[in-house]
Design a protein around this nucleic acid. Structure first.
Lengths: 151, 151
DNA sequence: ATGAGTGCAAAGGCTTTGCATTAGG
DNA sequence: CCTAATGCAAAGCCTTTGCACTCAT
């Protein structure tokens, strides 16, 4: 296991315990799965990668991890919810969402752009009265596979 | 009725008919409701503003309008789906989403920023192999009301 | 022992769908 | 007339929940 991964679990465990819950092996595995995936995973995929843990338990554990600030549920227009590690664990990023197959890929922008974006958000917050705490920028398009298939 | 509104219905009707369906008075009313709202409306709100049209019919009509490219379903983390007119009818815009009450408000960025954003997206599309067709930038924060209440 | 986690099954809640009826072209 | 739209009720589907059992502390 990499140093980064070890670090991840230490942080995750701390948060889960701070939330008054246990860092079970099941939860550890879920964090591991999401970390390895590197992009938001739909529930069936999580279920499939965790040999033996029933669906209801997966939901409950994900809810626990979400409450502890380790996992967040990503909203998509698919049937199943997708889950990823929170940004303060993985770093700020954006999503490329395939409008055809639903695949989601993590991506980063040039840092300069991210700054410009922040500035715009601040301006917007002031103009509208919203206290902006975060943003969510998703790109919708066709992934390589679907683009090739439809060509 | 404003000239813009008349224009809107003409376009909407054309699309619905092109999709092989009728521009019913019920559908016309739905378009009217969404146009007046000026921001994505959750289903209960739509139902409430349309005196007499059963829930299943509202769903069916929204689906028809969506298929015709007049309406689009907005993804949120709320229980109910939200609906708005498509961007080519209302113009490109973004959403301010209140993380507390779920309120959604439409907003625009400075046009210069929008250009920068497009450039970044083009660069990203090239780098990742995604054919980006659109983007969706939502700001999550506290709306005026909720910010005041929690202060 | 004592509370948390798990499995199983049932319930929930939004959305969709089948079917008979009604209305629009 | 003929097809589409509507209402009503039932079904679907993801997700949540109740309850008894097991496991870890």
């Amino acid at each position: 296991m990499s140093a980064r991964s070890r670090e991840l679990h230490v942080t995750a465990e701390a948060r889960v315990r701070a939330a008054g819950q246990r860092y079970t092996s099941a939860r550890r595995q879920l964090v591991e799965i999401l970390d390895r995936a590197g992009s938001p995973l739909p529930l069936p995929a999580i279920l499939g990668r965790h040999g033996d843990l029933k669906q209801s338990s997966v939901y409950r554990n994900l809810a626990a991890l979400e409450q502890a600030g380790v996992v967040r549920r990503v909203i998509t227009d698919e049937d199943f919810g997708r889950y990823e590690l929170t940004e303060d664990l993985t770093g700020h990023h954006h999503h490329l969402v395939c409008s055809n197959c639903g695949a989601v890929e993590d991506v980063d922008f040039a840092s300069g752009f991210e700054d410009t974006l922040e500035a715009q958000l601040a301006e917007l917050a002031e103009r509208t009265g919203f206290s902006t705490v975060s943003h969510r920028l998703d790109l919708i398009g066709l992934c390589r596979t679907c683009a090739a298939a439809s060509a």
